[in-house]
Design a protein around this nucleic acid. Structure first.
Lengths: 176, 176
DNA sequence: TCTAAGTGGCTCAGTGCTAAGGTAAATCCA
DNA sequence: TGGATTTACCTTAGCACTGAGCCACTTAGA
């Protein structure tokens, strides 16, 4: 079944207020990024699920594997989770013996998370497979396309983060 | 468990802090797509949250707004949710008076979801704002970049969906 | 017709996560 | 020094969502 893709989200059957066709491309880009992300995420999720991990758990292990021990707040920034979420994640990984908390001498409020030897060994075993999985997911793109896609997504992400919050009357932000 | 098919890559030492350069681009692309998506998603979420909606709720309203009444299963395909999730979503939207279920004459198991007049009016009011919000998020890209990004994400998504499940015997031929 | 298999949606238990609030520690500043 | 503020993490309540199992209905086949 060829997915006779509809002309565009906008022109099908638009009640009173039409959508300016200039919006069509933003809607389209938003959708297509969402779907690409969903596809990558889903395949990657299945891959790590074979080892009984969620993708976020894997993300924590990966960042610790590649960066060494990190403060919980630093992990939080890297994997974009909430404070409570990090506690929860590290708890689960600690229960499985992959991660341990360590005191921070300079700041006794803070904690490091670090891979245990078991965690290191585990990642050493599964990481290459996972990397290969990701590799297979982008095989459809040529090296140049990958490079270009990476650049564009970087720029898109930055632009979106820098955009002012929608629906605000261009408020003056305080420059810290 | 010797399903440990040697990934035929650097299964050799992968000390913390180093990533095989061969995988660097796939990891990078994965990350950058995730982050772009997260940024877009977060801003869009904030936008619709002003109206007390989640993004998924908005997605349902939007697809009904643009396509007209749809079977629940059709909505499920479009917004990539689970069967239980659709029931839950439509319940919430029905509680708010934006959506109603309708019988399907041809198949009495099935149900349509359709916007109520209030739902249409609501979307008529908020959709243009939201479209403008999305527009502002991609303003950092030139029109050519948007076009290219759309193409590349489309191709990436398709490639990822078509990829064989990771971690399965690679001796198998492609699924027919 | 009757039966078996397949399908669409609903129920419900469980999960991963967030957001708000709390505590202890660090930092700022009069 | 000492109070106020900020910061780092933890706790808790609750939410959005999934997935398995279910029923009602449809479809295919004998």
């Amino acid at each position: 079944m060829s997915r006779q893709d509809p002309p565009s989200v906008t022109t099908d059957r638009l009640p009173p207020g039409e959508v300016d066709p200039q919006f069509a491309d933003s809607l389209k880009l938003f959708t297509v990024v969402s779907r690409a992300h969903a596809a990558l995420h889903e395949k990657a999720r299945e891959d790590v699920a074979r080892h009984g991990l969620t993708l976020t758990e894997f993300a924590v292990l990966e960042v610790l594997y590649h960066k060494g021990p990190l403060l919980l707040g630093a992990i939080r920034e890297k994997i974009l989770a909430s404070s409570g979420g990090i506690t929860y994640l590290v708890d689960r990984l600690a229960d499985r013996g992959f991660v341990e908390r360590r005191e921070c001498q300079e700041d006794r409020r803070a904690r490091y998370a670090a891979l245990t030897p078991e965690g290191v060994e585990f990642m050493h075993r599964i990481f290459p497979e996972h990397a290969e999985c990701l590799q297979s997911l982008i095989d459809g793109l040529t090296p140049e396309e990958r490079k270009r896609a990476t650049e564009l997504m970087k720029k898109l992400g930055k632009g979106a983060r820098d955009a002012e919050p929608c629906g605000e009357a261009s408020s003056e932000a305080e420059p810290g």
